[in-house]
């Protein structure tokens, strides 16, 4: 596929925190509807890359395009204004490890927040949309509950509904199941699986290797701020020639 047909294309992204060089030239192309699993050892820069993709972290250098929004970073490039940044973020849904639901709002208000206050949608329309999404994630009966009355799995499903309410072009998941008790992981994974089946473009940072193998079209292995290996999950997990990838995945096979 040509570069223009891609949903996301990233080239030469660098990011340092003080003198810690965390992303060292990331190039990445993702097609519409593609599900990408982003894996790698702790500290390899997976979260930082994901956060660059929705501008929670501003890259030092490089180029990024998601849909029709394009940004260039680096010396001489002007930083996008807060309004532009906000519109861009509205187009990329993000799901966090620790849910980050708004505790002062009810479940349904959490889901309505984006449509209401980022898109200016009317109350009734936002409510109808939020209801539909809560049904989709199986939590319609929790609409009036406060987040602290939910289990971890339920919280994460609300967080997914909240992100979907913005109808993003791509969904980013940063270890969405890592903070969950083991018995609650599957309910969240099944929502993600369903999204993937519906053709949502997704980038998933995860340690759930069997899930990644199952759902992902492509796997990207990162180490030390670089993409070391990418391809189908089977290629990356089972047939990599790269020693660091081999040792990383062998740990998972033993576990």
């Amino acid at each position: 596929m040509s570069a223009d047909a891609q949903m996301i294309s990233v080239s030469g992204i660098h990011k340092s925190f003080d003198d810690h060089h965390v992303l060292k030239g990331i190039d990445l192309g993702i097609d519409k509807g593609e599900v990408v699993a982003l894996v790698g050892p702790s500290g390899s820069g997976k979260s930082t890359l994901l956060r660059c993709l929705n501008l929670l972290v501003i890259p030092d250098r490089g180029e990024m395009r998601i849909g029709s929004d394009r940004f260039v970073f680096g010396p001489g490039a002007r930083l996008p204004g807060t309004r532009t940044q906000a519109n861009f973020r509205a187009n990329t849904g993000m799901v966090f490890q620790h849910f980050n639901l708004f505790p002062h709002l009810s479940v349904i208000e959490n889901v309505m927040e984006g449509p209401r206050y980022a898109k200016g949608m009317g109350r009734e329309a936002a409510k109808a949309k939020a209801c539909a999404l809560l049904i989709k994630v199986g939590l319609q009966d929790k609409a009036a509950a406060k987040p602290n009355q939910l289990s971890g799995g339920q919280k994460q499903r609300v967080a997914i509904a909240r992100a979907l309410a913005m109808e993003p072009a791509v969904m980013l998941f940063d270890e969405a199941t890592s903070a969950l008790d083991p018995e609650l992981v599957s309910e969240v994974l099944s929502v993600m699986r369903e999204l993937a089946a519906e053709g949502m473009t997704m980038i998933i940072v995860t340690h759930e290797m069997s899930f990644a193998r199952d759902v992902a079209d492509k796997m990207i292995f990162m180490r030390d701020g670089q993409i070391v290996e990418q391809g189908s999950p089977a290629e990356v997990m089972d047939h990599s020639k790269n020693p660091s990838a081999q040792s990383f995945f062998s740990n998972f096979r033993q576990a």
Partner: peptide, 25 residues
């Protein structure tokens, strides 16, 4: 800070995040 991040990630502007998410809490 995860609260502001979640608000920003939704596409709220920083001042909306302050008024609607951070200050009420």
């Amino acid at each position: 800070p995860g609260q502001s991040e979640a608000g920003l990630a939704l596409g709220l502007t920083p001042s909306r995040v302050m008024r609607r998410i951070v200050l009420p809490q």
